[in-house]
């Protein structure tokens, strides 16, 4: 299989996902299937093809440097599990 069990656990841990061994086994199969399917593209020689960076012929829209947003701290922290004086309160970050 193109994706082994250790890789599955590594990706899960980078994504902060807790998965069981059964789920890992399932994901190993699914991810390998996806990778193998996409790998079929390797059969084509694309060395002379520019990578596609957009689906529509558009360039990035630019914004003027002006303050147009903010000043609603009440709303920003509204859904937070724990708040004090408009701060988000989180478990102690030890570094």
């Amino acid at each position: 299989m193109s994706v082994d069990r250790a890789t599955v656990h590594r990706i899960a841990s980078l994504a902060r996902l807790a998965i069981t061994e059964e789920e890992a086994e399932q994901l190993e199969k699914e991810l390998s299937g996806i990778f193998d399917w996409v790998a079929q593209l390797d059969e084509l020689d694309t060395s002379a093809v520019e990578p596609m960076t957009r689906v529509a012929a558009m360039t990035m829209r630019l914004r003027k440097d002006e303050v147009t947003d903010g000043f609603y701290a009440d709303d920003i922290v509204k859904n937070a599990p724990k708040v004090d004086d408009h701060y988000f309160v989180v478990p102690k970050i030890i570094e």
Partner: peptide, 12 residues
């Protein structure tokens, strides 16, 4: 980190 013994405070 100095606002509370058990918690850190975050300002965005």
């Amino acid at each position: 980190h100095d606002q509370h013994p058990q918690f850190s405070y975050v300002d965005l």
